[in-house]
Design a protein around this nucleic acid. Structure first.
Length: 889
RNA sequence: GGGCGGGUAGCUCAGUUGGGAGAGCAUCGGCCUUACAAGCCGAGGGUCACAGGUUCAAGCCCUGUUCCGCCCACCA
């Protein structure tokens, strides 16, 4: 890495680790707590401690890193707050599995030991995900790394819980919640994933007690009938106007239950009869409350039938379903079984079928909090980008229901509530109480439940900055600038951070929320282990380097669109990294020392041109990044580096670099080298947010650079604007020259003339200005177009037997005496002519349209007229040439 | 049942106030031209899903149809 000349190919492995260590050692990721500079903060969506880096993280982290590195170049004081989430259920499941491998269960070792094990496990593997983030180049302020179970964050959690409880926004109660029998815990509505499954609809006779027949009810879960406490019908259902009975016999249970009338019942469904199971269905629960029905819980928390299920007690819920159906069949009460597609809830962590169950749990009364979160976005205090997600956000907040926050697991923040065993008093406090506030007794037992993981992550933007203390960090960085996240946690996380931030900080947690899409495989399928289509980001990095991988992600991250990832695509962008590397390698062969940029007016045309293009590129890149248009920014830079800087500028200056040494040539060469140095340096600064490693490596090799590229300034912001400015005249002149060269290359390609074959060319242009521009750069044109001679004339004889290229402002002839393939050239010209004919008729049509002339804006009309003129000229020239070529035949 | 996104070249996708349809990859032809064959030069290829409408002008705006994908929802 110390040789002056770079290696022939870029080898990411050799430099990535080196530079990452360097950045950390130099403290370049560290935010300043107190600073005059603008504070710009991003809090990381904390990955689960159990996590392994996947494509979703890679995209998420890359976009954040691009923003952070960009803002540093813009001179902001950047804080990228890193950390991990304790991920209650997920982590507990992982550790339970490990225990199972040792032949143990958590109940056997007990709560305290179990939690110890989790901590121990976290110590061992908790840094794996963090190290993987580092391989992506993530410039997080690692010294501030937090964990949702940290002492500080735990204090914040308790403080929030207690305050919400005191404000009557947290309450405890018996309601129907989603219960996962596998994880043995309650879940919030969000943690249930509905999946449409092919099930059955069972139609069951419930005989009237007076022997006057029966009513048929339908259910998808026949085992719940054991807990039925009523049958409901619609009060206006004509089918049941004449029934004499008020009660039915609940089959299999030999129990009498009432027939109730409620307009909730949908008359159009089945027979219009509804079995009511208040303990196992949320609607039935409501119905039960209205009609004072008993709540009979027949499915236990372990997924087995309770003693209330009579002879079915102890059966697993699914076995019980079969047994109930069999028993009903035998009693002749099963009318029929239909196939039925319906949504079934599954646990988002273990995929078990979730059971709606009656249970005593803790809830957050979210409506008041949600209202503020809604308004903050409506008022524009927080922007959601892309805009379309606003509707989804509103929709959810408008229909929000209370949030079940208690979990019957061990790993998490234990709820700070204590019950006095003497007087049953409930004490909710931030500090562990020593005596009952009511009776003074000391037999206090803490609530065993822990909080939903998302409760602590909802506080993340301020708990990580030291809240509830009023810290300098909070003053400098709250509200944070941008949250970058996937839409899959818009409700879980974003909406709840909004609620908590507004409630406890009295300000939104972030100004912008940038929602990125999902990473899918190249066929658009969601990546999953079972499909076997998972691409491991680390594998991709090992193969192609972090920079190529990051650039690929950025290039495909169009707003609102999923990213389709394949290693082939990364390979494509590795070519780009290599291209840049080689451009630098070439430049460094000539850049032996740093030099001042000479005044613009003394520079040669290509130099002024590239500086102008660089300026345009910097402006476009800034504009795109400011709007989170990562793909546009990446595309703009790609285009500039490859097609303007490499394809044209470097080729054009080669002759200058190889000029013989004499005084005037040396002056010319020196100023070109100064421009080359400047452009290369500014270009890698522009690219640095996307591809940090290779740009740092090149930076370190450039003469005249010191420190890290991370300390550089974004080109548009340097005091002298890095010598950059748009130069329209230079761009127009260079375009003419490039058009002439392209025209000649075109002929060469079409006529199958070897590049090694030198050609003579004649350019005719009626414009004095154009002729003088071409004349002044005759060497350049001859060199790049490989010409033996170049004539430039105002007009005159068209050379016979020549191929022609008609460009804007000039006509190029390549005389091919004896070589010209007349048929081929005729065909080529005819084709061109046909094309231009189509264009011409389009504009002519417009110009012949009175309405267009009368109603279109003047500048548009003017533009069309100009075009018409141009097309007409081109057509005439083509026709003349075609005639001439035809005469040759 | 509601809501959202998408249908543009063979593939993957850009296309930001409506004004001559673009890129990358792939394909074809020609090149070892002293940074790069991970390269250079050139070429071909599109009824912008379909049908209407608004407009002087529609890939873009409106209506309808259709096909994909996703999210939300307590109809048994």
């Amino acid at each position: 890495m110390s040789s002056d000349i770079l290696a022939k190919g870029y080898e990411p492995k050799e430099v990535e680790q080196h530079w990452y260590d360097f950045w950390q050692r130099e403290g370049l990721f560290s935010a300043k707590e107190h600073s005059e500079e603008k504070g710009y903060a991003i809090v990381i969506p904390p990955p689960n401690v159990t996590g392994v880096l996947h494509m979703g993280h890679a995209l998420n982290i890359t976009l954040q890193d691009i923003l952070c590195r960009y803002r540093r170049l813009m001179g902001d004081n950047v804080l990228w707050m890193p950390g991990t989430d304790h991920a209650g259920i997920a982590t507990q499941n992982v550790v339970e599995r490990k225990l199972a491998e040792e032949g143990q269960t958590r109940d056997e070792i007990g709560r305290e030991k179990f939690i110890e094990r989790v901590w121990q496990w976290r110590e061992e593997s908790g840094s794996a995900i963090i190290n993987q983030l580092k391989r992506l180049g993530a410039s997080c302020d690692w010294q501030r790394e937090r964990f949702t179970m940290d002492e500080g964050l735990s204090i914040a959690v308790r403080k929030v819980f207690v305050q919400l409880y005191n404000e009557n926004l947290i309450y405890q109660g018996n309601y129907i919640i989603n219960w996962c029998p596998r994880c043995n815990t309650a879940l919030s509505d969000l943690e249930v994933e509905h999946e449409d499954l092919n099930g059955h609809l069972y139609h069951i006779h419930y005989p009237f007690t007076d022997g006057s027949g029966s009513i048929v009810v339908a259910t998808t879960r026949p085992e719940t009938m054991l807990g039925d406490t009523a049958v409901a019908i619609h009060p206006e259902d004509e089918r049941y106007q004449d029934i004499t009975a008020n009660e039915v016999v609940l089959p299999l249970m030999n129990k009498t239950i009432p027939i109730i009338r409620d307009s909730y019942v949908d008359m159009s469904f089945g027979t219009g009869g509804l079995k009511v199971t208040p303990a196992h269905d949320p609607n039935d629960f409501e119905l039960g409350k209205r009609h004072n029905l008993d709540e009979v819980k027949v499915i236990g928390d372990d997924g087995r039938m309770t003693e209330n299920a009579g002879k079915f007690q102890g059966l697993d819920r699914f076995e019980c379903r079969k047994a109930v159906v069999e028993a009903l069949k035998q009693e002749g009460l099963l009318e029929k079984i239909e196939d039925h597609l319906h949504g079934v809830g599954h646990c988002y962590r273990c995929k078990s079928v979730v059971e709606p169950n009656l249970s005593k749990q803790w809830f957050v009364s979210v409506k008041p909090l949600a209202q503020k979160a809604l308004e903050a976005v409506q008022q524009g205090d927080t922007r959601i980008i892309p805009d379309m997600w606003k509707n989804t956000y509103y929709e959810w907040l408008n229909n929000i229901r209370d949030w079940c926050i208690s979990r019957q697991i061990w790993w998490g923040h234990q709820i700070p509530a204590w019950t006095c065993e003497d007087c049953d008093e409930m004490i909710v406090a931030t500090e562990t109480p020593t005596a009952c506030t009511q009776c003074g007794g000391s037999r206090l037992v803490q609530e065993s439940d822990v909080l939903d993981t998302w409760f602590s992550s909802a506080l993340w933007p301020f708990s990580t900055m030291g809240w509830p203390e009023n810290t300098p960090l909070l003053n400098t960085f709250y509200p944070t600038a941008t949250l970058v996240t996937g839409f899959d946690i818009l409700f879980f996380w974003v909406a709840r951070m909004m609620m908590m931030g507004l409630h406890f900080m009295r300000d939104v947690p972030f100004r912008d929320v940038y929602i990125h899409a999902l990473v899918r495989d190249e066929d658009g399928q969601k990546m999953s282990k079972s499909k076997g289509n998972v691409i491991d980001p680390l594998h991709t990095i090992d193969q192609f380097g972090t920079d190529a991988f990051r650039f690929t992600l950025a290039a495909f991250a169009a707003q609102g669109r999923d990213v389709r990832m394949s290693e082939n695509r990364v390979e494509g962008y590795r070519h780009f990294i290599n291209k840049l590397w080689n451009a630098a390698r070439f430049s460094l062969m000539h850049l032996k020392e740093t030099s001042e940029l000479p005044p613009a007016e003394t520079l040669a045309l290509p130099d002024r041109w590239i500086l102008s293009r660089l300026q345009a590129t910097a402006e476009a890149a800034k504009e795109a990044l400011d709007q989170y248009r990562f793909n546009d920014a990446a595309g703009t830079l790609y285009q500039f580096v490859w097609h303007e800087f490499c394809d044209w500028y470097l080729e054009v200056i080669k002759p200058v670099l190889y000029l013989e040494a004499d005084e005037s040539n040396d002056t010319r060469r020196k100023s070109t080298l100064a421009v080359l140095e400047q452009v290369l340096q500014e270009t890698i600064v522009l690219l640095h947010p996307f591809i940090p490693f290779v740009t740092e490596e090149i930076w370190s090799k450039l003469p005249g650079t010191t420190g890290s590229i991370m300390q550089a300034t974004f080109p548009l912001l340097t005091p002298d604007n890095a010598g950059l400015h748009r130069d329209e005249a230079a761009e127009a002149q260079m375009n003419l020259i490039m058009d002439v060269i392209t025209g000649i290359r075109n002929i060469r390609g079409e006529m199958n003339l070897a590049p090694s074959m030198k050609l003579a060319a004649l350019v005719q242009s009626a414009s004095d200005k154009n002729r003088s521009v071409l004349d002044a750069h005759r060497d350049l044109i001859e060199n790049i177009a490989r010409l033996s001679a170049l004539d430039i004339m105002p007009s005159g004889e068209r050379p016979p037997s020549a191929a022609t290229a008609i460009i804007s402002g000039a006509t190029v002839f390549v005389p091919l005496e004896g070589v010209l393939d007349v048929a081929k050239e005729t065909e080529r010209l005819e084709k061109e002519l046909k094309k231009i004919g189509v264009e011409l008729s389009k504009v002519s049509k417009k110009l012949n349209n009175e309405d267009f002339l009368g109603k279109a804006p003047a500048d548009v009309v003017e533009k069309v007229k100009e075009k018409h003129q141009q097309f007409l000229e081109k057509q005439q020239k083509l026709q003349a040439n075609l005639e001439r070529v035809r005469n040759l035949a």
